[in-house]
Nucleic acid binder design. Sequence first.
DNA 1: TATGAATGAGCGTTCATTCAT
DNA 2: CATGAATGAACGCTCATTCAT
Lengths: 186, 186, 186, 186
Amino acid sequence: MARGRKVNSNGERSKQLLLEKAIELFAQNGYHQTKISDIVKAANLTQPTFYLYFESKDSLFNSLNAEFNEKLMSIFDTEVEGNLSLSALQQKLESVFTFFAQNPLLTKVGFFEAMDAAVVKAELAELLKQGITGVHGVEQPKLIAEALVGTVERLTLTCVLTGEYTPQQATEAVMSIFFASAKELV
Amino acid sequence: MARGRKVNSNGERSKQLLLEKAIELFAQNGYHQTKISDIVKAANLTQPTFYLYFESKDSLFNSLNAEFNEKLMSIFDTEVEGNLSLSALQQKLESVFTFFAQNPLLTKVGFFEAMDAAVVKAELAELLKQGITGVHGVEQPKLIAEALVGTVERLTLTCVLTGEYTPQQATEAVMSIFFASAKELV
Amino acid sequence: MARGRKVNSNGERSKQLLLEKAIELFAQNGYHQTKISDIVKAANLTQPTFYLYFESKDSLFNSLNAEFNEKLMSIFDTEVEGNLSLSALQQKLESVFTFFAQNPLLTKVGFFEAMDAAVVKAELAELLKQGITGVHGVEQPKLIAEALVGTVERLTLTCVLTGEYTPQQATEAVMSIFFASAKELV
Amino acid sequence: MARGRKVNSNGERSKQLLLEKAIELFAQNGYHQTKISDIVKAANLTQPTFYLYFESKDSLFNSLNAEFNEKLMSIFDTEVEGNLSLSALQQKLESVFTFFAQNPLLTKVGFFEAMDAAVVKAELAELLKQGITGVHGVEQPKLIAEALVGTVERLTLTCVLTGEYTPQQATEAVMSIFFASAKELV
DNA sequence: TATGAATGAGCGTTCATTCAT
DNA sequence: CATGAATGAACGCTCATTCAT
């Protein structure tokens, strides 16, 4: 067969293509079920081409996860208007759901397939714990925070990523479940 | 050199040993990170012996999952005393947490490592949805049910399996989060 | 094709066979030209079998070299009778040539193909330098030692390993070249 | 993105650059450890450019070796003044060491890294054998010739290429080792 | 003249699985 | 009942080489 450069080939596009297919496949089938041969086949390229743009399967997967983590964490770095923690929390939550909804594949990979997703979730729990500590009526912040993470995780997977619910709706649902009584007080 | 039956060996015992070690390793490291060579090494046996008792790695893993699923589902098959759905739900929840707490390894495998854990969780969500439909004040049963599943899932992993909370405490926490207002009405 | 154990198969023999073929091929063709596929083909086995007995191609090659180095160096560890350094040197030299003659393949690998053969030769030069320092008439021991190493190396390759000369003959030749005048004095 | 001829680029210069870098790398790291990508990187060029000037990695390596061989052999083609073979030999030897000292990289490649260095050395041995045959006191010319080659080889590597000894010094050392007695007779 | 982009061919290695004993 | 020995099939990765521009 013909070797060498393809007609109309373009490196940046190839790299992008590989990335896209990789995310798709990782999201769909997970890390182990996704072979490099699958990725390049989907991108209509060959295996050596993969290594032209990525160091290894591992490093690609890790960089995807790193990207997910950074973006997720950056949500909590930005200040929000108002300092009533409950409304602040609501804003964060909505940002999180929105981020997930706008990056469904990355989310599936980083939040549901990654080996270190557990770490991210633990970090998220910690952040949420800090966000709810002091909210009136919350007595076991650690436990509530974990429940929140679980709820977010599951709603994301079954309601938001499916398009059944908007990030706003999901947020409201979560708020009403967890802080209905608190709200009434406000 | 020496081959054949070990002294003091016993088929049933070997099978049991392999099963135990398999669950431990699957629970700790997941399916792909657990090699058959690891399992038999842990059981102080050899690879062909594994195939004496199990058809394949897959089939063993699947049977573990099936066992988990059955046991979990059986909780919902048994009638509970009283038919006020909320207290029935509470009883089911406690049974679930108790089952998880008493079978931590099986739970880690079947609920957190299995490829088809998604199916189990969906079934669980469906059952819970039926359980809460009609409960006063619950307006989006599907969504609530999913949130419940997520909460149960996360609390199990981070609070119950760690021993930090008892099944009863976890149950109460869940009930108070999700049905505090309803309870007050009762 | 048939998998599993071959008829009349024997692990120790297979390992030995692989080792033999490996040495032969490494000796003949060098490290890079020798593929694992070549080795197992020569041993009438398959690639996974290679890894049953050796950790990797590298580790096998290195262990061969280590074995060579140890055996070579052990010659210089043993005391010799008489302390006239010249006759001691002669004994060592003959031991070296004998070792080479009796382990032709290992010698080809460890002395002529190994990446770290340079190190061994440097060590050998140092040992010889110590052996000749103080011998009457030797004025530039370092240089003489290196010349000795070169001579030994070349004679080994072209005269001893070919069987053209015996270790004794080679030794005598070396001694008469390098120490003829000294001997006359004795 | 930008392709085509570099400003200030010049074919002859590029070829020269590649050659230089290739020799350096081959000399330093050997044939297999030197990748074409290394060579062109060192020359600040790209891989296709390499193939503009050389047929293949092999052919470049071979041509370097051929160059080395020719130059080395040419030393023995030129007549020397005087026909006393011993002084003739000394002149040749000094020419050889001088050639090595003046072409250290080419020498490392052609004499120490090339697959067919063995052939060159055999030829050298043959030439030296002819040179010493008939010299008074030399009884086993073949053996002496091989010893000479080994000595030259090793002294070159450890004394001459390092700059520790001049070609003249190395020559004298070799002559005094191998022909001290003969000289006395003269 | 030179490069960006791509690939064929192959290598070392791993793992679930299976004979023969 | 159990094991020692072996393998098919595949995977991640590398490298010299080549087209299209």
